[in-house]
Amino acid sequence: MSSIEVIQRIIYSLAIALLLVYSLGLPKRSLFFSSLVFCLLILGENFIPLYRTSSLVELLRGATGDVSIASGALMLSIIANQFDFSGSRRAVLSRYERLFLLFIGCVLYLSTFSFISFDVYHLGYLSLPMLLLTAAIIFILILYNRRMGYVWLLALLGFYFRLQSSNNLWDYLYDPILWLVLIADSILWLNYLIIIRKKQLKREY
């Protein structure tokens, strides 16, 4: 198994196990028990054949392809954030960053589906404008101490060392799972805004 496969397997295994452990609310009950379940899940999702000799991780990877380094780093950053008990905990991505990423995803995937005739994905084959623009965005984000800057810097490092099987920078910076999560997040946020607005209107009348 290549190092690329190992990295992807680790990201997928962690993501599935964490999702299951957190969705069952286990960490609130017992840290030891949730850690044990977490380890068992990691083993099970990799080695128990579920369908036609494929494990859960293999089934999911077949359907979704590889996760970007940026998504993997964001996921780890969100997990690390859960252990920040300093009282000054803030969201990994600000609302503006989420909207920015959502917009990028819309442009990239609309172009991929050929609803935009310009091929945005092609820029990722190390074109000079793409490289300079990405570097400038990372520079500004790091300057303002935003975690997204460090996440994209990791993605750029991954691209340089070819830590994924793609030679397109977009595949290191972005993936459709992140885009779908951001769409869901934006819908929830809009719903929240609508509820707040309704409450305000009720108060006014």
């Binding site: 000079l128 101490n145 490092l157």
Partner: peptide
């Protein structure tokens, strides 16, 4: 904005990366 070692290291890595990737491109 305060000076932070992590930030400084990250910016140095970014500049180096941009330069080597630019060299690859050219």
């Amino acid at each position: 904005m305060h000076f932070q070692p992590l930030k400084a290291v990250a910016l140095v890595i970014l500049l180096w990366l941009t330069y080597v990737l630019y060299l690859n491109y050219s």
